[in-house]
């Protein structure tokens, strides 16, 4: 086991992937608790697809992928949030439309410029080789900002998640914090999607929160458990992918699924005993 780990850590790309992955998992798990509870899970999914379109565009224009994707996805976060809040439009249907449209446009751009190749597959399903050194720096910066803002606004995020009308009524600008949550989610998704893949990154947001809710009963416990679970599943996923040469993103998702099943089972047993 130790031999395996030393071997793993001797590769610079693995170390880079681990640094970024651990930070992104942490951010995704924190934000995921609010998104899942507010029934905004689809926003994460929508944003990752928009991110895919933006990456394809950046490639075609020969620009730096993150520098294009971050603003595009941030704008999309605003739009998707407005759509979800506006009950007159069917929010989930509108998000599905935006997701698939961005994916379609992205695929067309890619096939027109470089043709469907290994790159396309990497964007969709992630690649551990995706992170360059400058990407790592940017990712670390973004993740640190996300975590700091989350901790600073923790109490407000709780209040807005639990009861938006009460929070508004007592003078907190709930819309501002919804926007904050959506923006932080956008940043997290853009940073994480090239490793996890556009189609799989949203699982990083949804799984840890849902899994933790099977067992834990207070908000703080759920947040802490999600954070720990997310990081552990990511590291386990990387190891799994290294041993069996599985794709990284898919391995992380499968480990998350496994934990979800285990937590659900324990939850059911606990309920049966009580």
């Amino acid at each position: 086991m130790i031999e395996l780990l030393t071997e793993l850590l001797s590769y610079a790309f693995v170390v880079r992937a681990l640094i970024v992955g651990v930070l992104v998992s942490l951010c995704a798990a924190l934000l995921g608790v609010s998104l899942v509870l507010k029934r905004y899970s689809m926003i994460g999914d929508g944003l990752s697809h928009v991110g895919f379109g933006a990456l394809a565009l950046a490639m075609a224009l020969n620009l730096s992928p993150l520098e294009v994707a971050i603003p595009v996805v941030a704008v999309a976060a605003f739009v998707l949030l407005r759509i979800s809040e506006n009950s007159r439009i069917k929010g989930d249907a509108a998000i599905a439309l935006i997701s698939s449209s961005s994916l379609a446009i992205g695929v067309i751009i890619i096939s027109y410029t470089s043709g469907m190749n290994a790159d396309t597959s990497n964007y969709m399903f992630g690649s551990i080789l995706a992170m360059s050194e400058s990407d790592v720096l940017l990712s670390v910066g973004v993740s640190v900002v996300v975590i700091l803002l989350y901790v600073l606004f923790y109490n407000k995020i709780f209040a807005v998640t639990f009861d938006e009308s009460f929070t508004r009524a007592t003078g907190t600008n709930a819309g501002r914090y919804n926007t904050l949550i959506a923006l932080l989610t956008a940043l997290t998704i853009v940073v994480g999607m090239r490793m996890m893949g556009a189609l799989l990154i949203s699982s990083l947001i949804i799984f840890p929160a849902l899994t933790s809710m099977r067992l834990f009963k207070t908000f703080k416990q759920v947040v802490i458990s999600s954070a720990i679970l997310s990081v552990c599943c990511f590291v386990a996923g990387i190891i799994l992918s290294f041993i069996f040469s599985f794709p990284t993103g898919a391995s992380v998702v499968v480990i998350n699924l496994l934990m979800f099943v285990i937590f659900s089972a324990i939850g059911l047993v606990k309920k049966a005993i009580a």
Binding site: N155, K156, F219
Partner: peptide, 21 residues
């Protein structure tokens, strides 16, 4: 709201959120 029905939050977490203002 529907959201609150299965919301994981302790009683004290909910009560103290009234002090936010």
């Amino acid at each position: 709201t529907v959201i609150q029905r299965d919301f994981p939050a302790s009683v004290s977490e909910v009560v103290i959120s009234g002090c936010l203002n």
